[in-house]
Amino acid sequence: MTYAPQTPSESAYNFAYLDEQTKRMIRRALLKGIAIPGYQVPFASREMPMPYGWGTGGVQVTASIIGKDDCLKMIDQGSDDTTNAVSLRGFFKKTAGVATTFETADASIIQTRHRIPEKPLREDQVIVFQVPIPEPLRFLEPRETETRKMHGLEDYGLMHVKLYEDIAKNGHIATTYAYPVKVNGRYVMDPSPTPKFDNPKIDRMPALQLYGAGREQRVYAVPPYTDVKSLDFEDYPFEVQSFDKPCGLCSAEGVYLDEVILDDHGGRMFVCSDTNHCEERRAQGLTGPMAAAPTAAQLSDGNEPKPETRT
């Protein structure tokens, strides 16, 4: 007995991998999401050739909107060159043949995990977020049947109690990322696990924001210029992380920094999490206090990513 599986060539897959029927289904869900900002629209998420939890929601959203004239930027943790960003960018290069870029300003679609670029986005750009758990109430109430009712009734008491308990116990709201927001004065939404530092960026952002959660089978959206308010209390207003030093490499202030351990004697430096932002600044000749240090040179040189150009 011989098993001869038919092996389709790569070209057997449709443009951007998904079949047209699946794209139509996701497109319909996206339109509903845009019409009801912050509401999580159920959709029949497909198995993708990368595991659930590794960006399948974002990939399905991007695959449903992308066209051959688009230019795609793919980031993870703010960086174009983290392993999964490399892998997902390669997926779209292979299946859609679209132009890709590291430059925030050149991208028409930006797919991201855990960060929003420092450079303000424009009306003609779309940012697609990969979302692990779309339900902001999930860790307070594990049942979908219950959280759905709460959203339906706009009953967000549980969330306020949780935040208030944080304050009572710690004197702070102890949520540092995936910080809940209220969208258009109606739905409480999880902005995906971006640090709360990025929350102000999604308030009245000129670009369209699309959120995809593949495993949890939800998409949601925030249209341009939509009011997005981080939940807080009058006496405990929302505040973002601040860093007391500038970026060690490019001296940027007011940006999100990553802590890099340099040695095992407590040596460390803080550098931009948005690698494209940092590189642009250094190309302009801006340098930080650590830029000349040999340890920093090891970090910033040698493995410079090749800037990709639009094809």
């Binding site: 794209k23 497109r27 996206l30 339109l31 845009i34 019409a35 449903s64 909107i65 066209g67 009306e123 369209l208 959206a221 249209p223 341009p224």
Partner: peptide
């Protein structure tokens, strides 16, 4: 779709 998506978003 992109035209319609943009119409719905704006």
């Amino acid at each position: 779709f992109r035209a319609l998506m943009n119409a719905m978003a704006q």
